[in-house]
């Protein structure tokens, strides 16, 4: 998937760059279980490998998350999407967009890439059925112009999964 590169591709602010360097350093010492950061020299876009947790529907499957950071991170949420192919999940659209409140309305600057990853893995792990969201086709069609999931007015499915 060629990414909708996010609403703004402005360079990271000094505060954002400083914080991301610290997050990356911490990640290297203490990565969240089940995740692998693919090293690049691009601090503003991280590609992270996710390994489905053992004993869940996604065991032994690997997926890739693409995380893009806005200029004013962490005052603004990062844009997080799955690269193709996205896992089959009731809250994950086939274009990789993820319906998860903390990525949008419920973002808090005290959250980190690491804590976001853990939330996404827990969302995967608690799934009981491998299927797309009911409105998948309509939503994906609406996003064809390369719209970022951050521009979507999300109506969060529920908080059980």
């Amino acid at each position: 998937m060629t990414s909708s590169s996010g609403p703004s591709r402005k360079a990271l602010s000094k505060i954002a760059a400083n914080r991301l360097q610290k997050e990356l350093a911490e990640w290297q010492v203490n990565p969240p279980a089940g995740f692998k950061h693919k090293p690049t020299d691009n601090l503003q876009r991280w590609v992270i490998e996710v390994l489905g947790a053992p004993g869940t529907l996604y065991a032994n499957e690997t997926y890739q998350l693409q995380v893009d950071f806005p200029e004013h991170y962490p005052m603004e949420a990062p844009q997080v999407i799955f690269l193709h192919p996205a896992p089959l999940h009731p809250h994950i659209y086939s274009n990789g967009h993820i319906c998860l409140d903390i990525l949008y309305d419920s973002w808090s600057p005290a959250m980190t890439v690491s804590s976001v990853c853990i939330s996404i893995l827990s969302m995967l792990s608690s799934s009981t059925v491998k299927q797309r969201p009911a409105d998948n086709d309509r939503y994906v069609k609406n996003c064809r112009n390369g719209r970022s999931p951050k521009e979507t007015r999300w109506w969060f499915h529920d908080d059980k999964v």
Binding site: E76, S108, P109
Partner: peptide, 14 residues
């Protein structure tokens, strides 16, 4: 900055 831009809540406890 957070209170002004993100929202009037404690970032950790909400």
């Amino acid at each position: 900055q957070h209170l002004q831009k993100v929202g009037k809540f404690d970032p950790v406890t909400r």
